[in-house]
Design a protein around this nucleic acid. Structure first.
Length: 289
DNA sequence: GGCAGCAATAGCGCTCACTC
DNA sequence: GAGTGAGCGCTATTGCTGCC
């Protein structure tokens, strides 16, 4: 299965036109054109479309679900959307967009969850809908219109970070579950350092863009120095990173301790027999502090 | 069961501040 | 002046709750 591209967006509009009217999917400009976004050069009267929000949210979520399903060969793993994990405070009020779990159920135990994905994808290119011919034509990438894809918007990223931190601090049971934020555009420059820091700190294991070619001309950032942000260029590359996540036995830990206490924990942990036991002991000491 | 009210979520237009 | 980033606020949608 291909990663995100123009065809996916065209398909979104084609499919959505079966469910919604054109004026719920496109803006109508002063020249009578139906447009996905207001072009940068447009100076006429504008409105803000809201009716597309849930449609694009559902479409991208299902697209990610099918993509992940096509990449997972392990029969014991399942891709679940709108998952609830009560132990982590993830309820029906704010379910996890996508999770990979060991059981095919909507309500999951923390121990059944292998990875949590927060999906932040939106329409990247600008599109014009020709009512007469029923054709949808691409008229420019995200540099040519006034809208901004989620990954380039600070508030969208802050929202994602907030949700991830909310999960991280909900329960110690969340400490073994990697969290990935998925998008379809490059991360804005201001958040690249933060993405690396969030990865180093263990809060979010990555911001992954599933759109290899978000621009019609020119290139975009492939990765950040510490891989907090990654642009996947093929489904195989995505699969490699997914497998890496599954094979790592990750543990999130955090704290604010004075050096003396930390030194004592290290000394106590060092009394254990092997490295794994030492690590476990250290984490338990941190947990109890 | 049906309805209203409320809160949460989501995407995106808008404005302001800052930098070049 | 143009471009960019940050963040506020708007509104459609959805789900929950309480009331009748």
């Amino acid at each position: 299965m291909n990663l995100w591209n123009k065809n996916q967006e065209k398909l979104f509009f084609t499919e959505s036109l079966k469910l919604a009217k054109a004026n719920h999917l496109f803006y109508l400009d002063e020249d009578g054109r139906h447009l996905a976004y207001w072009p940068k050069s447009y100076r006429g009267v504008k409105s803000t479309l809201q009716s597309r929000n849930s449609l694009i949210g559902n479409y991208t979520e299902n697209w990610v679900k099918n993509l992940l399903k096509s990449l997972i060969s392990d029969e014991n793993l399942h891709v679940v959307n709108q998952a609830r994990i009560p132990a982590l405070g993830i309820t029906s009020r704010s379910p996890a967009d996508i999770v990979i779990s060991t059981v095919d159920k909507k309500i999951l135990k923390a121990s059944e969850v292998k990875v949590i994905f927060e999906v932040k994808m939106s329409i990247v290119w600008n599109w014009q809908y020709d009512v007469e011919s029923n054709e949808i034509l691409e008229i420019g990438d995200y540099r040519t219109h006034q809208g901004k894809p989620s990954f380039t918007r600070s508030d969208s990223i802050l929202k994602a970070i907030g949700k991830c931190i909310d999960i991280r601090v909900s329960n110690f049971k969340a400490s073994k579950i990697p969290i990935i934020v998925l998008g379809n555009a490059p991360l804005s420059n201001g958040f690249c350092k933060k993405a690396d820091y969030l990865k180093s700190a263990g809060i979010i294991q990555g911001f992954w863009s599933l759109n290899p070619f978000p621009l019609n001309h020119g290139n975009t950032r492939k990765t950040t120095p510490k891989s907090g942000f990654l642009r996947m260029d093929s489904s195989m590359e995505l699969k490699i990173h997914l497998n890496r996540l599954f094979n790592q036995n990750l543990n999130f830990f955090s704290g604010m301790q004075d050096l003396e206490s930390l030194g004592q924990y290290i000394e106590m942990a060092d009394m254990e027999d092997n490295c794994k036991q030492k690590g476990l002991k250290f984490l338990n000491l941190l947990k109890r502090s």
